[in-house]
Structure formats: C-alpha cells, structure tokens
Design a protein around this nucleic acid. Structure first.
Lengths: 339, 339
DNA sequence: GTTAGCACTCTATGTTTGTGAGTGCTAACT
DNA sequence: AGTTAGCACTCACAAACATAGAGTGCTAAC
C-alpha cells in the first residue's frame, strides 16, 4: 500500500491533532491548522479515500475522522520516523537507580515511578531473574545472645539478610567456622542444587553445630524464592483518569482492576521475552485483552548484568504520544542496561 | 442530647440501610424492612424531629433521608457499640508479617495490602522511626577482589547492606580488624552523634586503612537517613471507584491525586501522634481537606518494639462500615504491636 | 484535479411533559 | 397525647421532542 504524499500529510495531521485534542478532526480544521493549500472539499475527498483504506473512521456521520488502529500502526512503523522528538525525553537517572541496585523490588518501583512521571501515562515494570539465582556468599554474624544474623549475597549484587534465633548462644568465632563450611559447600550453587546428599555432607562437616543448618537452609530457600519470583510494579494509574477516553467510569475501573491484577499484564509483556533494546508497540486491541483494548502499550526489555531482566512499559490511551513514549523508553532502557 | 429509644432505632435503621445501599431511606422502607410496628406517618414525624436535631438530611424534598456527619459521629461514638461485629474481622497474619520485619518499607506495604483486601476500601499505612536510629552492628565482608560488602544492623532488627568498591583489595582478616574498630566506636550511636571529633579518632585508630572510612560513613549516613525517612504506602485505591458516591469522575480523580501525594495524608494521620491502640475516626469534613470531604478515615497507631511506629488507616466513603473497619483495625494493630 | 454550493445526517443541547417516590400537614381515631 | 389515613405538594428523573451546528457526500462548474 503506497499512499500519495498529500494523503500522508493529511493522515499525519489527523493523527497529530487527535493525539492532542482527543476529538474527531474535520476537513476544515485540517485546512486551517495545517495549511494544506487546498480547500476542505479536496481534503474531504482524500479523507474518504483514507477511510476506504481502513485508516480513518467516523464515530458518526456528522463527525470528523479519527485514526484507526491501522493508522496508528502505520504511524508507528513508518511515519513517526520523519518527526523529531521534542525535548530530551529524560534526564540522566543512572545515579538514582544505582542506589537501588541491591534491592530489585525497590529498583523496579523507582523505574516505574520515573516513567509515569515523565510520560503522564501509567507505567509498568516487571522483573524476572535470567538464570536461577545462585548463592555467592554466606556470612553468619552474632548480634545478640542468641540472635544470629545471616547475610546472603546472591548473584552479583543482591544482598539479603535475616535474623533468626539459635537455640544456644554461639560465639562469633564459632560462627565464622560455620560460615566457612557453608561457603565452601554452597557457594555458586543454586537452590535446586542443594539436595539431600549435599545437606547430609554439610551436616557431617558441621559436627556439633549441625542443628543450625535447618533454620539457615530455610532462610536461604525463602530468600532466593522471593528474589526469583517474577514481580511487577505499576505506577501512575491516576494519570489514566485524566484522559477523556476513560471518562466512562466502568471502562476506567475495569482497566484499573486489570492493571492491579498483574496476571494479564505479565502475559502481554512477556510475549516477546528477550529482545533487549527493541521497543514494542501494541496498539489497542492488538494486546488481545478487552479490558485494555482502548489502550496502547509501549514496552521494551531491559537486562541488567545478565542476572536480572524484565520489561518496562508505558500504557496509555490509543492516541498516545508514541513518538515521545518510544524515545523515552529507548533512552531509559539504555541507561538501565548500563547499570 | 438524649434521644428516645424509638428515635434511636429509626436512626440506626437509616444509617444501616444507607451504609448498605447508598440511597436515601424513606419512611415506608423503614417500616417494611425494619418492622417498627408503627405506620410510615409516625416514622415521618420522628424523622422530621431527627432532621431538626441535625442528624438527618434530605438531598431534596421528595427524597428519603440520609444520615448527617453528626449522625455518623453519634453512631461511631455511642450506637455502634450495641451491635455485634459479623464474622472474625481478620485472620492471623502475624506469620506473614514477621517475614517482612527486616524491611520496614516492605512491611507497611504488606499491611496496606491486607487492610485494603479485607475491607474493600483504600488503605494507608505510614511509618516513622520513634527515636533516631542507632547503629547496632557493623560488619565488613570481602566478596570480590575489591568489592566490600558493608552489613549494617540498625536498631534491633533492621539489617541493611551495601556493596562498595575499595581502592585496593583488602583481605577478610584486615576487614575484621576494621569492623572491630568501627563497632567499638559507632555501636549505639545515632548518626547525629558521629561528629568530626569521633571521625578523627576512628581515623587515627584505623591507621593505614583510613581511606576506607569515607565511603563507609557515606553508606551509613545514606542508609540511616532512608530508614528514618517517614514513608507511606497506599493500597486498594481501585476500591474507591466502586462506590456510587465517586461516580463523579472529577471528585474521584481529585481524591486519588490527594492520596497519591502523601503530604496531606501525613498531616491528617499524624494529628494524634502516639496513642497506640486507640482507633480514631474522622468523618467527612472532619479531616479538614476538601478533596476528601466525602470520605471517612478510620485510623490507629501501631508501635513495633519501640523502634518503629506509624498509623494504619482505612479510607472509604462516609457511609463506611465503621463497625467492621474499627474491629478490623483493632485486631490488626494488636497483631502488629505484638511483632 | 479542484472547489463552491447545498442537501443531508447525526449528535449535543435545551425544553417540555409525565411519572413516581417521598414528603408534610390535617383531621380523625384510639 | 400519640398514631394514622388521606391528600396535596414537591422535586428528581426519564422520555419525548425541538433546535442548532458541525461535518459530511455529492454534483456541477471551474
């Protein structure tokens, strides 16, 4: 399908105007605001053609035209490239993010916050672990008569810890010995690799300290499971309410509920698992979920250090400012990947 | 003001019915549903009296009555006690919460989630530190050529950690020595107490390892500041949209925005700082903020271990089920305080 | 190929009218 | 004195209708 140059100009004008004003665009509006140098009648003829091609729609006979999903698709795939992004889409946020690197949950929350704030749409950030997390370092620390602090370094840079009660008071020197044994046996193992055999072996090495093994293993298992659990953070849902397309409360509510139960979102965002860098755009019904068929999703994958990956997504009305959203995500993901 | 028994019964009926159905209650509805044993006309006379007392209101002449804020106040202060809470307001959640004890942020998020899920209103949980946090234990751990893991135990049970790069590789034995010096000087000190004098002294003791002090202090300061920062978690804002009183989108949006910018909420919730156990109810305009004058807030303070305290609050429409909300919060706060 | 002119369509808005819910008052009843 | 049947009254809400205006498609002329 190859369109004449004027048809493209008209289509762009309609898309731009509709993105901005959320109202059907009429032929004379185009002439006036986007000086086409022809009369409204001519524009009307062209618009009729564009409608025939499935690029424009009329909400009703006496209204202007609005772009169809197909038009947005064309816009995103081809037309958008001609335009310039306005101002720098996002500041340098490497510093802020680096401070959260040791807590993936907090990290994705912060990213979501940044995205929603900068786009004024809703933002969703998911995270998963790329490989099964492995234990990197274990250290036991005596902090109280019989409270023991277990510090766990997982993968490269995630540190978690937990305090548990030991049955008896254990001196730091003893704990150091225990730590050493644990490290020798567990380091670079994932939780799956800690089998009964290994546990038996460690138990034997521990000798009189054998009892402490059970609570420790429990903590390790719980911690790693929590880290490996895919998670997802949503931010800026309010912004959604600002758009006239959601003045229908029922639609808005459905959608919010959908975003809250992250199940569906996960399915959508994980469709294209691992094409880091490339930004995906899902327009309206392309997502396949009726609850959000009035929304578009712009998303991209990030990948930190080969240990954690996920998707950063912007979700807004179909008449979203794709140009900026894409630019912002590209920039942001580049920064995140560099972490 | 002492009301006759029948007036009270009528008032209760109106409040109950309105809480349930969100629609003005007429005289015949009361007779039918709450068999009063008298005719609608009699009820009408009584209702006129109640309106005279400022306890009932009419949205318009030909509508039934709705309770005024004053009526809810009476209900909460006096009448409610006669009624029985339906089913057990909340299960035992001590176990779930205990797993989050080492991360206050995560803890309040979980509590908020529990509250909103159980009440179907929105929930807000704030946290502050009761005293300035003090350092309880410091441990440096070598995990990589020149990556050092700093483990900080703060107060009783908060553990934080941070990985930083040292200029040179330092062996674990050396780090142990440094840790010991740090502990000797910083343990049981708050960040305010770490002044230049003390730093100089520690620097001297550290001798050749002096250089490592700066990054460590930075991490300590940052961590404690983050912990001491009052924070707040909101959950279940969607629920708000389910109530007919917020079918006006503008109102709903204003309110959501208000909840999102937690400033105002903080002011409200911190009005009664530290009366642990007692549940407060703010009805409608009593909160003093027009954005949420169609809402009521039920809140109570918790206090964990004398180190962290805050407020757990439920926010819903004025015709909230106060009885259940109060019972649930009482129960929950009891469980939280026991942590 | 372009455009002025015009009839046509359909929404949005305002007006009118009818209906029903619920009231307050009065007069009769217990 | 308290209760109640009866009734006129008020007012929101909904349906029915009228009107204005925006925008179209078509035709015929340029």
């Amino acid at each position: 399908m190859t369109l004449g140059e004027r048809k493209i100009r008209i289509l762009m004008a309609i898309i731009d105007d509709y993105i901005k004003n959320a109202e059907p665009v009429g032929s004379s509006t185009i002439v006036k605001k986007y000086d086409m140098g022809v009369s409204p009648a001519t524009i009307r003829n062209e618009m009729a053609d564009l409608e025939g091609l499935g690029l424009l729609m009329q909400p009703h006979t006496s209204a202007g035209r609005i772009p169809s999903e197909k038009a947005y698709r064309l816009y995103v795939n081809e037309l958008m490239k001609q335009k310039q992004v306005g101002n720098a889409p996002i500041a340098d946020i490497g510093g802020v993010l680096r401070t959260k690197l040791d807590d993936p949950d907090e990290l994705i929350r912060e990213i979501a916050r940044i995205v929603s704030k900068n786009t004024h749409y809703a933002a969703i950030v998911t995270k998963s672990q790329i490989r099964k997390s492995t234990i990197r370092y274990i250290q036991l620390i005596n902090i109280d008569e019989n409270s023991v602090l277990l510090v766990l370094v997982i993968n490269k840079d995630i540190v978690k810890n937990h305090i548990f009660k030991a049955n008896a008071s254990i001196a730091q020197e003893e704990l150091d010995i225990i730590s050493k044994i644990l490290n020798k046996n567990f380091t670079n193992h994932s939780i799956q690799e800690i089998n009964i055999e290994l546990i038996k072996k460690v138990g034997a090495e521990l000798g009189e300290y054998k009892n402490i093994l059970a609570p420790i293993l429990e903590v390790i298992a719980g911690t790693i499971k929590a880290i490996d659990k895919p998670d997802c953070s949503v931010s800026g849902m309010n912004n959604i309410l600002d758009f006239p397309e959601f003045s229908n409360l029922d639609k808005a509510r459905d959608m919010m509920k959908f975003l809250d139960e992250s199940e569906g979102i996960f399915k959508i965002l994980n469709q294209y698992p691992n094409d880091s860098g490339k930004i995906r755009v899902r327009i309206g019904s392309e997502s396949g979920f009726s609850q959000i068929d009035q929304c578009s999703i712009v998303s991209g994958s990030y990948n930190i250090n080969d240990s954690m990956y996920g998707t950063i997504a912007v979700i807004g009305p179909i008449r979203m400012d794709y140009l900026n959203a894409v630019a912002l995500l590209e920039n942001l993901i580049r920064q995140v990947n560099r972490l």
